[in-house]
Design a protein around this nucleic acid. Structure first.
Length: 174
DNA sequence: CCAGTGATCAGG
DNA sequence: CTGATCACTGGA
């Protein structure tokens, strides 16, 4: 029996960032590399950023050129460079004009958002990429009974206690 | 602990 | 234009 892999669709990504962050665990990022080969990566760790009211979310400071794509309907890619070195790979979620995203922090045994960006060779050209339609990167539904643990988000000490203590980081259990 | 590295954004 | 900041990593 052949397991048919289906690209995740708009119905998936338009859920809120918390739902998407939890439900992306165990799903498969598919990427076409420079040689035309199809690479598969299992998502193992995610983090949710949820709206302008979330003090840890980039959109907390409102709409800017960088955060613009977060205001799109779920299904786009949000990338940004941090510390001049690391490209963060995020999936935009939720409805139009509600800025949310899920940061991919781990794939397979690669743990750490900077390492994920490096492995996927993310750069600015991925900003706004449409996961529903792209021919070079997308995410596929994957049969899984994923168990996970929740932790506070990483690197958000600048946010108020209410926000930095939220356990919006999700890690697949073994 | 700390350096590296450069885009981004608010403020003059 | 300036300068602070940054959802990080790797090496003392």
């Amino acid at each position: 029996m052949l397991a048919v892999m289906i690209r995740l669709n708009s119905d998936f990504y338009t859920h809120d960032a918390l739902w998407v962050a939890r439900n992306l665990l165990g799903k498969t990022i598919v990427q076409i590399n420079n040689e035309g080969c199809e690479l598969h990566y299992r998502i193992t760790e995610t983090e949710a950023y949820l709206g302008e009211e979330d003090e840890a979310c980039h959109a907390n400071k409102g709409r800017t050129p960088r955060t613009e794509v977060m205001y799109a309907e779920g299904g786009k890619v949000y990338v940004y460079l941090i510390y001049g070195m690391y490209w963060m790979f995020n999936v935009v979620t939720g409805s139009f004009n509600h800025p949310e995203a899920v940061l991919i922090r781990g794939i397979d045994n690669i743990i750490g958002s900077g390492k994920v960006g490096r492995e996927l060779k993310i750069n600015k050209s991925f900003y706004g990429e449409d996961l529903l339609d792209s021919s070079r990167i997308w995410i596929e539904d994957t049969p899984t009974t994923e168990k996970f643990d929740a932790f506070p988000r990483v690197g958000v000490d600048y946010a108020g206690d209410n926000w930095k203590l939220k356990q919006w980081r999700f890690v697949s259990r073994s």
